[in-house]
């Protein structure tokens, strides 16, 4: 065998990369690092820029924080007595989200259980694709469906005077958050080791007993995280609730009342509020509030998931 001579020019060239290649690689790696850090920068930037626009109103004499949080009187354009109370909006958000979850959680978790445990591989694939497509429908289309199809159905079947109300928004939001609950829930069930299932089957358990006695307790953290992420989605949704829940700023008393949510309120009024006015700044403050709510929900979900993975 012919051992190559290390002084041969071809061998020597191989060991030396041009300074440009080395420098270029260094530069690129720095760029990659910078991109990695960018996520943190963006989160901070979002908080900074929204808070910056909102800050001056905190020192305005016509604004009080306790009124902002605990008063239901939202009269931002009143010329006599301006009041910025968001309680009705917060309760609107809570009511719509709660109703959506009442519908979406059983169906979402049931769907996740069916896909993960009962369905055949082919049906599973088809179901997952359908759910992915369901998740892809834009929120403005959902809002439009609420405005037209759903509101007609609600007027026909409940006899409500207007079809755009809490019930409508709840159903639309439920349909929007079901896909996320299904996919995260299915991940959680899939993460339960097969040996758990095998042990159950060896004991003569049926599929249902297995789900109910073994899988649900084992996957409960992941399922909880799925629900939390569904809540996060529902709280943050804007266009669909803007179009489907009606426009009345009021504390809802029944599911056929029109409501307005925090997000819809910002979307509806931001265009009309003069830049730099108190009204404009209060809307940014609402943004800070929303940011804080979803921040808490998402971080909690992440901790729940991580606690689950560690086990």
């Amino acid at each position: 065998m012919n051992i190559p001579d290390s002084t041969h020019p071809a061998c020597q060239r191989r060991h030396q990369r041009s300074p440009f290649a080395i420098g270029g690689e260094k530069a690129l790696e720095w760029l990659i690092r910078l991109s990695g850090i960018s996520a943190i920068l963006f989160v901070l930037a979002i908080f900074f820029f929204i808070f910056r626009e909102a800050l001056p109103v905190l020192f305005s004499e016509r604004f009080s924080l306790s009124q902002f949080l605990f008063s239901a009187e939202w009269y931002p354009t009143s010329s006599v007595n301006v009041r910025y109370g968001t309680l009705a909006l917060t309760l609107g958000t809570c009511a719509v989200t709660a109703l959506a979850m009442v519908i979406a959680v059983p169906f979402g978790l049931g769907g996740a259980i069916y896909i993960s445990e009962f369905s055949s591989p082919r049906a599973r694939e088809a179901l997952k694709i359908t759910i992915e497509l369901l998740a892809a429908i834009p929120s403005v289309v959902w809002g439009f469906i609420g405005l037209t199809m759903m509101s007609k159905l609600i007027v026909t079947y409940t006899g409500a005077p207007v079809g755009v109300n809490l019930l409508n928004g709840g159903i639309i939001l439920a349909l929007m958050s079901v896909p996320i609950i299904v996919s995260i829930g299915e991940d959680a069930l899939k993460a339960v080791p097969d040996s758990f299932r095998e042990a159950g089957i060896a004991m003569g358990a049926t599929k249902w007993q297995l789900v109910y006695r073994v899988l649900l307790p084992a996957a409960k953290n992941g399922l909880l995280a799925a629900v939390l992420l569904g809540v996060g989605r529902a709280v943050g949704e804007t266009m669909a609730v803007l179009m489907a829940t009606g426009h009345a700023v009021q504390i809802p008393h029944g599911i056929l009342d029109s409501v307005r949510t925090l997000t819809a309120n910002v979307a509806a009024e931001l265009g009309e509020a003069p830049v730099g006015s108190d009204h404009y700044r209060v809307l940014f403050l609402t943004g800070v509030l929303l940011f804080a709510i979803t921040f808490t929900v998402n971080i909690t979900a992440d901790f729940v998931i991580r606690g689950f993975k560690k086990k």
């Binding site: 979002i46 929204i50 626009e53 929120s139 992420l229 996060g232 709280v235 943050g236 949704e237 804007t238 266009m239 997000t263 910002v266 979307a267 931001l270 809307l283 940014f284 943004g287 929303l290 940011f291 979803t294 921040f295 929900v297 998402n298």
Partner: peptide, 9 residues
């Protein structure tokens, strides 16, 4: 998880 309206703001 940031709501789309917060992105708008």
């Amino acid at each position: 998880g940031v709501p789309s309206i917060v992105h708008a703001l």
